[in-house]
């Protein structure tokens, strides 16, 4: 569960031509992963060219299940290394998705920081931070 400190803006993603579809989907509360339509490999982070086929025009964004499990995590216990816009303690998790790629996200309201453990089954959910920023978090999922 993450609490934001009022008055300190949350940093927005850096959006450019390579990752725009990824973040546009998040804005519509949809989750997509980049896939090369030639070799069918999934890639994270999204990129302009497929490293397997070396092609610039085969990179699609396909709907993803958003299901996965916690691969690793950290918990900010002091403000020394934490982002000032989020209340201490807060956790950040690396989640391995069913598609095999891994993304980082905070735990949703239904997961307390102490409950997080490696291997925990989770599922994506979306949070509107403010009118110009929507992010994904992960909530509990029955295995």
């Amino acid at each position: 569960m993450v609490e934001y400190v009022p008055g300190i803006p949350i940093l927005k993603p850096y959006i450019d031509a390579d990752n725009k579809p990824y973040w546009d989907a998040v804005n519509d509360h949809k989750f997509v992963v980049q896939q090369c339509n030639k070799c069918k490999n999934y890639y994270q982070p999204p990129r302009p060219m497929c490293p397997e086929c070396l092609t610039l025009d085969t990179m699609d964004f396909v709907p993803a299940s958003g299901k996965g499990e916690v691969h690793s995590y950290i918990i900010y216990t002091t403000d020394k290394m934490a982002y000032p816009g989020m209340k201490i303690p807060y956790a950040v998790m690396v989640v391995e998705l069913d598609e095999g790629v891994r993304i980082t996200a905070n735990n949703a309201d239904d997961i307390d920081t102490e409950e997080i453990h490696i291997g925990m089954p989770v599922e994506i959910t979306f949070v509107d931070i403010d009118d110009s920023l929507t992010l994904y978090q992960f909530k509990k999922r029955e295995a």
């Binding site: 850096y14 934490a82 950040v92 980082t104």
Partner: peptide, 11 residues
């Protein structure tokens, strides 16, 4: 761009 997958999460 690549920090866009971690900074917004306070990471």
């Amino acid at each position: 761009p690549h920090y866009g997958y971690t900074f917004p999460m306070g990471f």
